[in-house]
């Protein structure tokens, strides 16, 4: 109960604190998008390949584009105040529904990628720190540099060629077996099968970052006094690593992971394109191309909220990891 209250309080504070940020994001993007050449009606009329002045005017009025820019902004914000993200005439659906349909795929992709990169990154970092300066450190260092320097979309395409086309082990794209209607464990297994390649492609760069971060902070933490004390007490090196060093090393990593959440959604645009995943990143890209601003603003809003929630969770995690932060509060 107390935890829940703390969590709720932290969330609330974070929200209040970030309200200006959210508003800023909406305003900046709304105004930015006004600068883009062409509007949603141009795109729809262009796609249809035939249009008349009347059909264009009808489209513009459907999108509310016949109103002045301040009026459009006012409509958007007043809708938002009623927790309504608006309607997309292009998709013939509410923005909530559109985002709702896609959020799951993107969240699964991002969480899997995060989990994968954290596990592998920390493991690699520990190994590197353990054998610091010797050949395993060097080899793993080069590996992590490789992960960090290779374009994610290229690796994605190569993974498809190897694992889907040549070996036939994993599907080439999509987010699940279409029309299979699975539940429970088979559904989970199905999702994992479809997400394995995209999540790996997305995780690659972060594996490198976490590995190097783990290595650095473990070396730093290893030099602290309490570790020396523990060593003096005769604890085994692995016990020290796990109990003291890793715990401290996790602090900067969790901070970074929180920061990376927003970046990952950006990376998801490319990965979702390569693996034809029906996710938010791809929707955002399509929305930019189609000048469907309600959808784009909705996605930016939801993803910003996600980033904020992640940061709150990271804060809580850090309190748990480091008692010193708790006492400071």
């Amino acid at each position: 109960m107390k935890i829940l209250l703390t969590l709720g309080g932290a969330l609330w504070r974070a929200l209040l604190h970030t309200l200006p940020t959210l508003l800023g994001i909406l305003l900046i993007n709304f105004l930015l998008l006004q600068l883009a050449p062409g509007d949603a009606a141009d795109v729809m009329a262009g796609e249809s390949g035939s249009a008349t002045q009347e059909s264009l005017a009808a489209l513009r009025s459907q999108f509310g584009l016949d109103q002045s820019i301040p009026m459009q902004l006012w409509h958007y914000l007043s809708n938002l105040a009623h927790f309504n993200l608006g309607y997309s005439p292009r998709y013939g659906a509410s923005v909530q529904a559109l985002i709702g349909q896609r959020l799951g795929t993107t969240l699964t992709l991002m969480l899997l990628a995060l989990l994968f990169s954290l596990l592998l990154g920390i493991a690699l970092g520990m190994l590197m720190a353990r054998w610091q300066g010797r050949w395993p450190d060097r080899v793993l260092y080069v590996c992590s540099q490789f992960f960090y320097s290779v374009p994610g979309f290229w690796i994605g395409l190569m993974l498809i060629v190897v694992f889907s086309v040549k070996l036939g082990w994993l599907p080439t794209g999509g987010s699940g077996t279409i029309g299979a209607d699975l539940h429970g464990w088979p559904a989970l297994f199905d999702t994992l099968r479809f997400m394995a390649l995209p999540a790996s492609s997305l995780a690659l760069i972060y594996i490198a970052i976490y590995a190097r971060l783990t290595r650095a902070s473990m070396l730093e933490a290893g030099a602290q006094d309490y570790v020396r004390t523990a060593e003096a007490k005769g604890l085994s090196p692995w016990a020290i690593t796990f109990k003291h060093v890793l715990r401290n090393a996790l602090l900067p990593i969790t901070t970074m992971a929180g920061l990376h959440f927003g970046g990952m959604l950006g990376g998801a645009v490319v990965i979702e394109t390569v693996f034809s995943l029906p996710g938010l990143g791809r929707l955002a890209y399509d929305a930019v191309m189609a000048r469907d601003y309600n959808v784009l603003l909705g996605i930016l809003l939801i993803s910003s909220l996600l980033v904020i929630i992640t940061n709150v969770l990271v804060d809580l995690l850090q309190t748990w990891l480091d008692p010193r932060i708790r006492s400071r509060r």
């Binding site: 993007n29 998008l33 920061l259 927003g262 645009v269 955002a284 930019v288 996605i299 930016l300």
Partner: peptide, 15 residues
Amino acid sequence: QTMPSFVLLVALVAI
């Protein structure tokens, strides 16, 4: 830092 940077990049380049 909160906005997904690549989405912003795509929007900027489109503009």
